[in-house]
């Protein structure tokens, strides 16, 4: 019942080029369409990432994942409300499997952010001016490096600006120290038992006669 797990997802510092995805309200159905959800494992979903946008052009430009200029980017910069819609954790699994380690946006949907952080995909919320700057710099000079330092909670832009960002304090500890949320919950078993003793279970789902 360890609270620290050597296999837990980690994140410290990431330095990478950026892939720009200049759309708002990118929903998890776009990130990983429903036809890929029939899997029973977490691995291998990268092949379905943005499946319906792959091979298409947008305003004359190839879709960002088809553009060789952004091939090695590990940071995705997206529009506001990234990850809205379905709670499918397959979305961060697909982004990670494809090779992304962080997503930068002005605002994330709640469930996506929680799912991403649990898997070590860092969500970095920045002001609109920074997001726009990162987006246009990525188009102008693909390969320009962005540095994300979770310990200091600072993103360094290609033009050398240091931007502080907020991140859930518990998620930060999990990623920096390898703290395991399941282990953390299991360590609180006495308190859970105490709660259960004080709050009797009103009904039992097994009494509905389901198989």
């Amino acid at each position: 019942m360890t609270r620290h797990d050597s296999t837990a997802p980690r994140f410290t510092v990431l330095e990478s080029s950026v892939a720009p995805l200049p759309f708002d309200h990118v929903d998890t159905d776009q990130i990983i369409p429903a036809q890929f959800l029939k899997t029973t494992v977490r691995e291998g979903l990268g092949r379905g990432l943005f499946d319906s946008w792959r091979g298409q052009t947008h305003g004359g430009e190839p879709f960002v994942l088809d553009d060789p200029r952004f091939e090695s980017a590990q940071i995705l910069v997206a529009g506001e409300n990234f990850g809205c819609g379905s709670s499918r954790e397959h979305a961060p699994w697909a982004l990670l499997d494809y090779g992304f380690r962080a997503v930068v946006s002005t605002r994330f949907a709640d469930i996506f952010r929680s799912n991403a952080l649990r898997n070590g995909l860092l969500t970095v919320q920045v002001p609109g001016s920074v997001q726009e700057g990162l987006m246009s710099r990525a188009f102008e000079s693909p390969g320009a490096l962005v540095r994300i330092d979770l310990e200091r909670q600072v993103l360094t832009t290609p033009w050398g600006e240091e931007v502080e960002f907020e991140v859930d304090a518990f998620a930060r500890r999990c990623l920096l120290e390898g703290l395991d949320p399941m282990g953390y919950l299991l360590a609180h078993q006495p308190q859970i038992e105490e709660w259960e003793a004080a709050n009797p279970q009103p009904f039992d789902t097994r009494e509905c006669g389901a198989a």
Partner: peptide, 15 residues
């Protein structure tokens, strides 16, 4: 709604 990792948390701890 919760993600699958959290589904695991609830299955194991009801929390």
């Amino acid at each position: 709604g919760i993600g699958t990792t959290e589904v695991g948390h609830v299955l194991a701890t009801q929390c």
